[in-house]
């Protein structure tokens, strides 16, 4: 849609291996300003790992990730903090600090990174909470609100510094259909109105097709299909069709054996695994 806009994210030949298993295998794509990229794929296909590489909290085995034109893979902690001020991130669980109230959570980035007065901060917190439909929840603690509310507070916190780029890890899972629509609407308004760029990891196909301007489907650590929502919807690839229509039968296997699972997902070697193996009659 915005193919000629400024490139915000550039991922080039990204490879991440754990041991000899490639969790991400040669992934390349670009995201332009104002785009909403939806990354989808089955559980354990590397979506979250990909996201963690994009926010610079994991280092790839090889390949490059550029945010705002700057290479983040080789950056020091200090340099990466500067880039992180320009984007917000919504975690799957919300990741609110349990020791702070809802309002203090949203205010945290403002208190740490701006010189705004307490009154201004209170005003911004109110406004951000209103955006996610949580007016008047400032003084509650995270353990007093539901999972879906936590996620919306997480979104308000991610938006506190008015980021140019928003990463969301399953923003709508656990929300009711109305709240899903509200969050989608919010994402759309921000990308259309303020030219924010969004990268959303989602299982929710209704929501994905509502907000996406580009989509990527991951499988076994590589890109199965990518394109506009229409291209994905009309994709001849049977894996894509099975996934977006949520069919139990198709090329994506229903039950992975343990070996296959270990092949797709890194399993941390346990200490003395060789000894355990012997007791279980396995050789190594």
């Amino acid at each position: 849609m915005n193919a000629n806009g400024e490139t915000i994210i550039e991922v080039n030949h990204l490879v991440r291996r754990f041991g000899d298993r490639a969790v991400l295998d040669d992934i390349s794509f670009n995201v332009h300003r104002g785009d909403t990229l939806v990354i989808m794929g089955g559980s354990g296909c590397g979506k979250s790992t990909l996201l963690r590489h994009m926010i610079g909290s994991m280092k790839p085995t090889s390949g490059s990730v550029k945010l705002f034109g700057e290479e983040v893979t080789g950056m020091s902690e200090r340099e990466i903090e500067r880039v992180r001020l320009r984007f917000g991130m919504l975690f799957q669980s919300g990741a609110l600090l349990a020791s702070l109230t809802v309002g203090e959570n949203v205010a945290l980035p403002l208190l740490q990174h701006t010189d705004k007065s307490p009154d201004q901060i209170e005003e911004i917190v109110k406004q951000k909470l209103q955006m996610v439909g949580l007016t008047g929840f400032e003084d509650l603690r995270p353990d007093e609100i539901s999972g879906g509310m936590k996620k919306r507070v997480g979104l308000a916190r991610a938006l506190a510094l008015d980021p140019e780029l928003l990463f969301s890890d399953e923003p709508t899972s656990g929300l009711d259909p109305i709240m899903t629509a509200v969050v989608d609407e919010l994402t759309l308004n921000l990308t259309k109105g303020t030219h924010m760029t969004a990268v959303v990891v989602s299982h929710d196909m209704t929501s994905a097709f509502r907000i996406a301007t580009r989509m990527i489907m991951l499988g076994h650590g590589s890109i199965v299909a990518q394109g506009t929502p229409d291209e994905i919807r009309n994709s001849p690839n049977p894996e894509v069709q099975q996934f977006i229509h949520g069919k139990p039968d198709g090329p994506i296997p229903l039950n992975l054996s343990q070996d296959e699972h270990e092949h797709h997902q890194y399993v941390k070697p346990r200490p003395f695994a060789w000894a355990r193996g012997r007791f279980h009659g396995r050789t190594r």
Binding site: R82, R84, M89, F91, A95, P109, Q112, R157
Partner: peptide, 8 residues
């Protein structure tokens, strides 16, 4: 991790 991503 959330703190780190918020550059704190």
């Amino acid at each position: 991790e959330a703190l780190e991503v918020m550059a704190i």
